[in-house]
Design a protein around this nucleic acid. Structure first.
Lengths: 208, 208
DNA sequence: TAATTTTGCAAACTTATGTTTGCTTTTTAT
DNA sequence: ATAAAAAGCAAACATAAGTTTGCAAAATTA
């Protein structure tokens, strides 16, 4: 028991100094993480924030955790994480028939998306080509975020494997036929007996 | 020198086995990072991917690094990072006139966006309300990514501060008048003598 | 000012974890 | 089938880095 009693005497000056210290450390960790992709060690925090002792940095980090600005996994190294979580999603380039989508060979790059928007086990991104979905605001060059699944419900926007690669369309099943409906007044439906569904579109990203 | 000569004898079967192993490890690391916010240790990789030796996991990780799918900082702990870098961007809720946009009080949360798409010093996100920009595929409920700046060029899509809050429109300056042009055939231009520009729209994110 | 509490610090301590080693097993080439 | 090369593995090794300690300095209270 280190506290004399339960109503702490709070010195405003001290509180201010602490908050300032915490801000400096928090900003450093943020910057470090976005530059390196992993968290700094307490010793690196010390050096960069002009703290004299690792114990000090250690304590500041713990206070930041208590304030909910950071998370930390005890006894692990560099195991500090920021509350804004992200998922790393591959952009799939060309999809050849018969090839597994999730083979790393098909990946054209990785993008980190906010987990709070796009969560799901298997996500990938795909470039939208053409204007077949323009009615629902999917433009040529947009990237769609796709949740991998091999079935779809009526009305879902899906990525399906057509003869010439992956295509984005609205999915309907009617009278044992699969209808891929372009959301474009100038285009007609495509009708198939069977089709391979690669996934369901759950999001869209555009660079302007 | 471990290699006999420079033309390697490649066994297709071995290549396949390796690639498969690398896929498993890579997917595990991805999942781990998005769940924990930091990378797994080689021993955790071993256990989860059924590798018998830490040396094996170590080698697989190194191969993934050579393939460019991961980055690693040597001699550091849990210092594997995915190539996808991200920036942390605040979502601005309601913007009252006269208030500074970047006051933390306005933040509704932080989202991590792919740095490769959205780079810039001061970014924020804003909910799109209404259908005034529907012609260029901005739907009600979309989030726009905005680069903070107080000027704009003709034709830019801007976030401007109107009487009732922030609004997204296309910007024109003509005859000393500011025109905010909705991209919606049913709506007319707004004309002002002067207006406050909050930023320029550089991206869009949609959750479907 | 003296007593008491809190904070700061350097160094010691501990251990999680990357890396190497040397032997064994498997695969490939002759 | 035999030799040679490569890959796999368990254990040892090395050390980066989290955590604790105990004293010194500063701040607070009386």
């Amino acid at each position: 028991m280190t506290e004399k009693n339960n109503n702490k005497p709070i010195s405003q000056k001290k509180v201010q100094r602490r908050l300032n210290e915490e801000n400096i450390v928090f900003n450093f960790i943020n910057k470090y993480v976005s530059e390196n992709g992993f968290a700094p060690s307490v010793r690196e925090i010390c050096k960069s924030c002009n703290l004299k002792s690792t114990a000090t940095a250690f304590n500041v980090v713990n206070r930041l955790c208590e304030r909910g600005l950071l998370s930390k996994s005890e006894l692990k190294r560099r195991a500090i994480s920021l509350p804004a979580k992200s998922v790393s999603v591959p952009l799939i380039g060309t999809v050849a028939a018969g090839q597994p989508i999730f083979a790393t060979e098909n990946y054209e790059g990785f993008y980190s998306l906010p987990e709070s928007f796009f969560s799901g086990e298997d996500l990938f991104m795909l470039n939208v080509q053409g204007t077949s979905m323009i009615n629902i605001g999917m433009l040529d060059g947009d990237k769609v975020v796709v949740k991998r699944q091999d079935t779809a419900d009526n009305g879902d926007i899906v990525v399906a494997l057509a003869d010439d690669g992956a295509t984005v369309k609205r999915f309907y099943k009617r009278d044992n036929k699969i209808i891929l409906h372009p959301e474009n007044d100038n285009m007609d439906d495509f009708v198939f007996d069977d089709i391979i569904i690669l996934g369901k579109v759950v999001g869209l990203i555009r660079n302007i």
